[in-house]
Structures are given as C-alpha cells and as structure tokens.
Amino acid sequence: MWRKKQKALVVTALLLFLLLVVLLSGRNGKGKAEIYERADILMGTSFHGTVYGGKRDVLPELAKELRSLETERLSWREETSEIAKINFLDGKEPYENISAELSGYLTDILDIADRSGGALDPTIGNISRLWDFGGANERLPEQEEIDKFLEKTGYEKLQVSENSIFIPKGVSLDLGAVGKGIGADRAADFIKKQDGIEGAVIALGGSIALIGSKPDRSPWNLAIADPRGKEGEILGLLKLSGEQFVSTSGDYEKYFEVDQKRYHHILNPKTGYPAESGLISVTVVCESGLKSDGLSTACFVLGLERGMELLKEYGAEGVLVDEEKNVYITEGLKSLFDLKDASYKIVK
C-alpha cells in the first residue's frame, strides 16, 4: 500500500516538475512567448523592436542590417552610400550599375511622386537642409535661398533606368521622407526569415512594421499620437492584423515658431515652405513600409480630398485629421479605429 502511494507521489512530482520545465522554457507568467526588446538610434531616428518568440535575440543583427541599409544605400550623409555617390556626381555623368535594391525603391518613390503630382519629391533635399528641422541649424530661411533651390527641385528631372540614374547639376537626392518606411520593410523581411518568431513590432520613428501575430492571437494595438495633445496623449487606437505597415506624418513632431507662426517639417515641394493643406495628422496603413511612409507625407501635402483619392488609388487605408479636429477614416479602418479624445469628432 505504502509503495503504491510512494510511486504515485514520485510520478506526481515528476509530472509537476516537467510542467515547470515547459513553463520556464520560453513562456512567462502571462502565457506569452519569450519577449526580446531593444531601443536604439538607427537611420537617424529612434528605433524600438519587440519580438515574440524565436530561438534567440535577433535584434542586434537587425540593428546591423539597418545600419548597413543606411551606410550602403540611403543616407546622403554617408559618403559610402549609393545616394551620396549619385549626388557627388552632380550632373557630370550618370551613375551606372545602381543596385537592384535602390532602383526598386526609386521606382516606387517616383510612382508616388508621379501619382501625387509631386506632393512627394525625392529631390527636395537641398531645401530640407536649409530649414534643418530638428537639427543644430534649424532656422527660417530667406525667400531668395528657397527660390534658388526650388529651381533645382523636381522629381521629373531625374532620369532613372534599370541600371543607371542621372541627376542634373545642382539637384540633390534625399530619401528622408521614405527612409524609415524602407527600414520598416527591410526589418519585416529580416524578421520573417528567422526561425520560430511568432510576431514582432518594429518601430522606426513614426513608421511601424507589424509582423505575424501576438502569442495570444489578439490584434496588434497601436495608438495614434494626439496631434494637439500634451506629451503622451493619444488620439485613438487602431486594432490591426500582421503584415501591415503604419506611418504617421504630422505637423507637431518637428517644428519651431517665429512670430507665433508654426513652421513644421513637412515641406510642400512646390513652395519650399511647410505644407498648409488644412491637415495636421495623416496616418496610413498598407502592405508596404515605403508606401505607408511616402503616402502619409504626400497626403499631408495634398490635403483631405486629394489625399483620400490617392489612398484609394493605392488601396491604402488612413486616418486623416484636419485643423478643426475633424477625423476622417477610410472605409477599411472604420471598425478598427477607436477614438479616445472627445475633443475630436469623427466625420461619417
């Protein structure tokens, strides 16, 4: 009798021990997979990565990957990058043997530039540098300075073929308006190649990649910052599934004031001055980081009506806010958006 009970006790103890081992190996008390997090400065902006599951922490490798994207392809500041090399030629000759990767990005950017009538323009670099929003030399430039560079601005001046690109003298390429979105695309591709990762959220400044799903399969829960709120306040929440990218452009992130007038960092390529379209915040959700980032800028510049049309053309979704605090939501997001600030009004 005693032996039987002894056996039962040992078996129970072993079973409980095994259960503990299972719980300890990759599961925490909330029933979630192991979580890896990293905050960093990458591609000239803040980076935050959260990865659920996987065999090891891959975020340090992702950080390296994004650094190489910046130094080898995108940054006009890094003399090793293709963009810097193209700018350096300054109209002397075409840049040959452009990488397929950069050529692909430029094709997508020029498509948005074309369809938005130049509301997104990768040749606005010289004018952006005059304003230097968020930089050490931030200032209100003289009209003459802007006019001088406006002559050298215009995406239609670029000649891009499959293997080469030619930019005329004085024209400067700057992919800043889509760089974070491209980084989000690259991050999503990298995460998807790793073993055992259930889901991840990668944020580069105002652009976010949602990959896979959370361990409990609930939708990703994203907040949109309140464009006129105090620090930390939110406009509303979006519940989204994975394999989507979200970017926001707003007039509140980087700005300065002169004589009580606000000068924000989203420039209208036609005027060289901050866009005054009546919109104060545009959030775009779609299947590509580059497109969500580029479209949020283009829609901000275009304004409500033309912005909505552009989103429709791309099959993208969005939440647009005007200066009267009216919130306009595309059809596909209406049931997924939850307004949290009563000072705003959803326009049906």
């Binding site: 905050a39 400065i41 959260t50 949602l210 829960n221 907040a223 910052a225 926001t248 992130e253």
Partner: peptide, 27 residues
C-alpha cells in the same frame, strides 16, 4: 522618446503599454 544621436542614448518611458496593452505608438 528622448534621443541623443551623438551619444547613442535613448530614454523611453512605460508608454501605456502595460495599462493600455499598447504594442506601439505612431507619431
């Protein structure tokens, strides 16, 4: 977050991710 690019420093705060169960904030 507060960022210092030259010193590669990032200061983040809880961000409501615990109370609101937020996965991220676009801004």
């Amino acid at each position: 977050p507060i960022t210092c690019l030259p010193n590669r420093l990032v200061i983040e705060v809880g961000n409501g991710r615990e109370t609101e169960d937020l996965d991220g904030v676009v801004y």
